[in-house]
């Protein structure tokens, strides 16, 4: 068979997919940090919209605002708010870790730094929960 006869079969191309970000089976600490940072970021973007929408009660006057506040006092909402604090705390602390790494600080210790961020976030959340309930 000469070179012209030879036809390489078309390789099976992997489709680029966002689900690769969620490949749970093979994650190391850094991979979990990446995934959690991305997910918490998206949750916070969603919350930003929600927060601004809820605050539209301010524009509808004192009665509307007081009614909204009364609704916000339910235990379910407060529990969700504790979750929100956890999300913010992790994203903020891991964000600091990412900035440090970008400047070449603590790159070799990135796993330890992840756990520092994680534990600090958990501690802050616990403190906030105590203050809120």
């Amino acid at each position: 068979m000469n070179a012209e006869e030879y036809r390489r079969p078309a390789p099976r191309l992997p489709a680029p997919q966002a689900k690769e970000w969620l490949a749970f089976s093979k994650r190391g600490v850094g991979g979990w940090a990446f995934l959690l940072h991305r997910l918490t970021g998206l949750v916070l973007v969603f919350y930003l919209f929600l927060h601004l929408a809820v605050l539209s009660a301010l524009a509808r006057g004192p009665q509307a605002y007081q009614a909204m506040l009364a609704f916000m006092d339910s235990p379910l909402i407060v529990a969700l708010e504790v979750g929100l604090i956890a999300t913010i705390a992790f994203h903020a602390l891991n964000g600091i870790r990412l900035v440090l790494m970008g400047f070449g600080v603590g790159v070799r210790a990135h796993k330890a730094l992840f756990w520092v961020a994680f534990v600090l976030a958990a501690g802050l959340t616990a403190l906030a929960a105590l203050a809120m309930f």
Binding site: K26, R27, G28, V29, G30, G31, A33, F34, L35, H37, R38, L98, M101, G102, V107, R108, H110
Partner: peptide, 19 residues
């Protein structure tokens, strides 16, 4: 890069691409 560091995790010869 988003610093998932999975490359350094699997590198068989300590290149540490993420670093």
């Amino acid at each position: 890069c988003h610093a998932a560091m999975e490359c350094s995790e699997v590198c068989p010869n300590d290149v540490d691409p993420g670093g």
